[in-house]
Amino acid sequence: MVQTTFLQPASWPEALEARAANPDAVPVAGGTDVLVEVNFGRLHPSGLLDLGRVRELRTWGREKGRVRVGAGVTYSELITQLRGDLPALATAARTVGSPPIRNRGTLGGNLGTASPAGDCHPVLLACGAEVEVASSRVSRTVPADEFFVGPKRNALGADELISGVWIPRATGPQSFSKVGTRNAMVIAVCSLALALHPDSGRVGTGIGSAGPVPLRAREAEAFLEGHLAERGAWESKRPLEEAVVDRFAELVSQAAAPIDDVRGSLRYRRHALRVLARRSLGWCWNDYREAAR
């Protein structure tokens, strides 16, 4: 019989101390992943570190061009409070589970689980977010595209907890799209985030559920950045040629590393990403052109 120690720190310093003293305890925020795993008998934690009482994690705020979102901010809060600053993240949060799940589940929990199908991850990649992690000794930030190190594995040290995420506020159009075989409450078959950054001329992408970790389509980003810069398209805001959209979509599709599983086929995932990339770029570029008018 496994005995589970239940730890419930009341503050962030207490949480970090508890983490340091109990490196085997599994951190729990909303519990929407951890408790499912426990119920399925796939996780037998010797300890649970409940972060639900840590108020510091529940806040968010703007700082210069960025938003710092506390790890304990729920999906529901992302949807209702951050739609303006972080539109793609709000859209992604809206695709998570059902209302009760969105009321419990948190951004930090999504990162802690680090599932390749985590709905927020593609947006964090596309936006160039940084994950803030801390131990009782030190605090550091990890770029989102270095945070996911394997299927359900992240860069968190044994004594570290996720404190928050720094996300640049949207300066241009963004989108998030998720394909699932039912119209709500579904784990992604694949997903794609796209963020245009007109101020820096950058293009951000994030692919979900089509590889061992959430992925950036770096070649697609570079191709489109190059094309837009070369043609002065950011300034001229002219329509994109069909061939450019197709090429971008192809590069996004190629960047994925999907597999066949119970949720979908490898072939479908590559195909769907191509479709999503084409549509997303169309919407974002169109929004960019419209916004300028």
């Binding site: 859209t91 809206r94 695709t95 989108s175 998030f176 799209s177 998720k178 394909v179 699932g180 039912r182 119209n183 709500a184 579904v186 997903s191 479709v275 999503l276 549509r279 169309g282 919407w283």
Partner: peptide
């Protein structure tokens, strides 16, 4: 709106296809 399209909340089409 989301529920008016295939894919629902997934936001995958605005009428395309």
């Amino acid at each position: 709106g989301a529920f008016g399209y295939p894919g629902g909340t997934g936001n995958v089409t605005r009428g395309e296809g």
